[in-house]
Design a protein around this nucleic acid. Structure first.
Length: 254
DNA sequence: ATGGCCTCGGTTCGAGGA
């Protein structure tokens, strides 16, 4: 069983790459963020033709999330039920007994921004909801773009980024609160090479210089973490023409 | 040099992303 997450930065632009990546990597579940499509524009037929069922919730221009699955999905929930939010950032589904939560956590823009306060409130709402989800579902996976680099080793230049949005202490504390629920960062269950990132700025030839951050994560409840045999970042699509600035993360469960 | 690039909406520039 393979679970993956990928912020595609516009599914309209990236649909051919998503289909190509799935052809090369036929994962069981793929969570997408930043689809940037209203639901009437979602490419259901193309995804179903590739052998995937799909659940999605989107809006114009910004945000938007989807779960693609080779297996039947049930109990689909859009947004965090207990957190009022106009932005389409969460979709959840039950697949093969696993509760899959796909999240596009707010960016925050800068620490003096209203968007930063929204990000922290949003993370609090997510936490409180996951407490309940964890009670209801033993096998819980939270996949997505967290917009948080959990530790300095997840940052290409920790000194240069210190205190900024994506690495600030309150954001990292919010991430640790998710771990305190018992969730495990799948990537860190294993020995990994240094300087492994999931996002690189489009500017400054950042990808070529590996000036990136690890901000896309797969968190697993203990019942799933114990079955996890690998977690890898697949840099391949970041090398393609007209790439997303993020690249997929894939966890394998035995 | 406090930008650089990409996407979108909607018009040729501004907002947002990270």
């Amino acid at each position: 069983m393979k679970l993956a997450t990928w912020n595609v930065n516009s599914l309209k632009v990236r649909l051919p790459q998503v289909l190509q990546w799935l052809a090369d990597n036929p994962v069981d579940v793929l969570c997408l963020q930043e689809t940037k499509l209203t639901d009437d524009k979602f490419p259901v037929a193309e995804i179903e033709a590739a052998g995937y069922q799909v659940a999605f919730t989107g809006q114009k221009t910004y945000n938007g999330v989807a779960i693609l699955s080779k297996h039947p999905m049930s109990e689909v929930v859009k947004n965090i039920p207990s957190f009022e939010d106009q932005q389409q950032r969460v979709i959840a589904a039950t697949i093969g007994g696993m509760r899959i939560v796909c999240a596009y956590i707010p960016n925050g823009q800068s620490i003096d921004s209203d968007k930063y306060q929204y990000k922290l409130q949003w993370l609090n709402g997510l936490h409180d909801w996951l407490v309940e989800q964890g009670k209801a579902y033993d096998k819980l996976a939270l996949l997505g773009d967290y917009n948080i680099a959990p530790e300095d080793r997840d940052v290409h230049d920790p000194a240069g980024w210190q205190g900024q949005v994506l690495v600030s202490d309150p954001e990292r504390a919010a991430f640790r609160r998710l771990l305190d629920l018992g969730l495990k960062d799948a990537f860190r269950l294993f020995e990994q090479p240094d300087k492994m990132f999931s996002w690189w700025d489009y500017r400054q030839m950042a990808f070529r210089r590996n000036m990136g951050l690890r901000i896309d994560h797969i968190l697993l409840s203990p019942a799933l973490a114990s079955r996890c045999s690998s977690c890898v970042i697949d840099k391949t699509p970041r090398k393609w023409e007209q790439p997303s600035d993020h690249t997929p993360v894939v966890a394998t469960l035995d």
